[in-house]
Structures are given as C-alpha cells and as structure tokens.
Nucleic acid binder design. Sequence first.
DNA 1: TGTCAGGTTTCGG
DNA 2: CCGAAACCTGAC
Length: 280
Amino acid sequence: MNTFNSINVTNFDLDKTLTSGQFFVWEKSNEYWVGATIDGLIVLLQPNEHTILWQTYPENNNLSLVTRYLRLDFDIDPLAIALSKDAYTKKAYDKYRGLRLLRQNVHEATISFIVSANNNIPAIRKSIKKLSTMCNRSVLFQNKEYYLFPKISAIAELSIEELKTCSFGYRAKYIKESAARLITWNLENFTRENEATIRNDLLTLPGVGNKVADCVLCYALGFDNVTPLDVWGQRILTQYYDIDPKLSYEKMRNWTQEKFFGYAAWAGQYLFEYIRNSSK
DNA sequence: TGTCAGGTTTCGG
DNA sequence: CCGAAACCTGAC
C-alpha cells in the first residue's frame, strides 16, 4: 500500500520547487509533499539530493504522469551553462540550485493564474482550496481527504454566486466564462502550435492578459524561453539590467528572450526567487 | 479607516 | 496605441 517508487535525479530540489511561485496546491504533510492536482493525486518524498520517492493515488504507479509533471526528461546541464553566462543568473542559480520548472495541467494553470491577478498568495491558495472542496472530487489517503483540482467542466457549471463564495470577487465571472470556453478547446493543438499562436488564443480568454498567458506557456506548456513578467519580474529588469521601465510588456519579454539563451523561463524563475527572498 | 497584493479590463486622449 | 482608474477580498 505504502510502497514508493524511486527515481534518480540531479539538481532537483522538491522543497525549493514546490514552494516556488508556480504552485498553489502542494502541501507538505509529514515528511512528504502531497499534490492534489487535476490529474490525480501525487505523493512525493525527497530523502536526499539524488532520489525522489513517489507514488500516485488512487491509481498507483502512474509513472507517465509523474514523468510528465516533473519534466524528468529536462536536460539541466545546458541550462546551468546558459545561466552561468550572466552574473545575476549565475548567482541566483547557485543559490537556488535544484529549483525546477514543472509541467502543470493547462486548465489548472489557466484558472489558477486568473485567480492570481491583483491578489496575494495566501488568498489564492485559500480560494483554490475552497473551489476544489466545492466540486467534491476527493481522494482518501491515510485517513485524510484530499480534494483534487476540479475538472474544467465542473467549474463552468458553477454559478457566479457559488464561485464568489470562493472569494474570487470580480474574477468570478472571468473564471466561469474562461472555464466554459476552455471546454470547447482541443488542447492537443497546443502541442503543435507555436508560442505566439498559443498566446493569442489564451489572450482571448477573459481575465487572461499578457502575464497570465505567459504563466500558462511557462508553467503548463513547457516553453522554456517564456517568463511571466509580474511586478517583481519587471522590477528585476529595470533595477538590475537597466531596462527602461516605460517599455511595453512585449518589449520587455522580447528582451528576456534575446538575453537568456533560450532559457528566459528559468532565468526569470531563479531571479525571482533570488531577488524577492533577499529583499524582504 | 486606509493601504496593498505575483493584473486585467475598461475608458478616454 | 498608451496611461489611468476601478476592481473583490482579507490581512496588516
């Protein structure tokens, strides 16, 4: 029952990764992390630097899900080389070594980051938890019920009033509308289309602007050269890289894509953790 | 009471 | 196109 599978990893720090800003659903329970994601329940344990123990519930041993979610096929060595070419990313990489970008479900990421707009992290987590509880899709694990992130159709079926009980506020109608729209999309297309095409599709969803669209590209679709530029990201560019704060979002994004050798997503993630944690 | 938070939308030049 | 204001909510 509680047999865990083991995978060997290098430069993969679960604590750093799962506490980073890409996630709102992971919880540390006793000695392992529990993620009640839209795809199922994943349990992970990190005994040392070179191994991750894992198991899935209620369906056990779902290796393909874990491989995909953790991006176990990602080659970390070229990343380290690329980030060593800039003084700030080199420092940030050294300090946050092991921090990884993973691959979330597209629906989950889109809804989560719509919620994140003009919001704070504890509130976002609370809202998403309430939403998950409301849709009542749970998995029992060691006498505790874990509520999975709802299917997109379940979210679309909720009324605006019900959604507002999750403290979504004015975002409630964006969430309902975007969920309804997402039902009709064939996400298979996202594996074929290019960055600009996907972004333009995402930007047609209510509540999705440049930053949220880039979150989906970066955190759910594996675009390693797209970093979401929130207020912190833009602060980093202006204060450390002497970028004109008046530049448009698109211009700033283009600059990061030229600057970081195809790894803007990773550069942004490391710099964000580095700057934010050192400035408070 | 007022401010602020990991943005987006809407509206007016 | 670009800048400004409004926007739910809950915690200082």
